[in-house]
Design a protein around this nucleic acid. Structure first.
Lengths: 129, 129
DNA sequence: TGGGGTACGCACCTTCGGGTAAGTACAGGA
DNA sequence: TCCTGTACTTACCCGAAGGTGCGTACCCCA
């Protein structure tokens, strides 16, 4: 999996963008990297409360294949891998901002409260959405 | 289903927006209604090549609950039901436009071709994405 | 007289996304 | 000597998303 059913015949650009973004943690990862610049695997894992290691690596690999993030391995003895956004990833974040604003308006008029957590999640809610 | 697992505790506005839009045919329905104004059930079904009747009704119901579309039943003898966008649905479409542009750029630089079909699909590809 | 269209509802089935738990190789600290 | 941390991989499992197919009540058209 992870790569077989992707890049399916898209019907339009929006379709292709949604494919790249679909996945429970994709947008969270995008925002983590946006606000921190560079993050290590364990830092991302701690930032995205509730993510499993399997899903995190799987999503990171897909996003790397999609050209959204850059992965740099440092061949050190405690292994060190650093993730950061590519220019395409940064552009994606920009393109997602209006959607974030719309969603925040929706939450407000529906009276739905967001989950309060520590760390990046807070920053996301105060930043763009 | 259709309503139980939705409106889950969102982590931010973008999260809430993605929830509303997630579903194989949601954005397609949005664009169909955007470009036609008012559509009947069978018209939507013909416009979204490959959608099953079950999925179409299911998605339409969810989007109605989310306040994205308006459903008007005409009590006639061949039943007639008309769907149109609400103001929130229109705003959502606006918020999705940048994402559509980003996706189209992605398709272009990846050299991925979109599926060529008749009808609305064409219009979507030429309009915003 | 039967075939097709309208707008669905319902039951069943398959597929896939995501979660859980364990294992890996190596090193530093208690 | 064992435990923890790093950055994963692998196998297994579950539930939800989505697809298929049938039934419905009524009508028009050939």
């Amino acid at each position: 999996m992870t790569r077989a059913p992707r890049r399916g015949p898209y019907v339009c650009g929006l379709d292709a963008a949604m494919d790249v973004v679909s996945g429970k943690w994709k947008v969270l990862i995008l925002w983590e990297l946006e606000h921190h610049g560079i993050r290590r695997f364990a830092e991302l894992r701690r930032g995205l409360t509730g993510v499993s290691e399997k899903m995190l690596t799987q999503h990171l690999r897909e996003m790397e294949q999609d050209g959204l993030i850059h992965r740099e391995v440092h061949p050190e003895v405690p292994p060190r891998v650093e993730y950061s956004l590519t220019e395409h990833g940064i552009a994606l974040n920009r393109a997602l901002e209006p959607l974030g604003f719309w969603g925040r308006d929706r939450l407000r008029r529906e009276g739905i409260s967001t989950v309060e957590r520590e760390g990046v999640v807070e920053r996301r809610c105060t930043a763009a959405s």
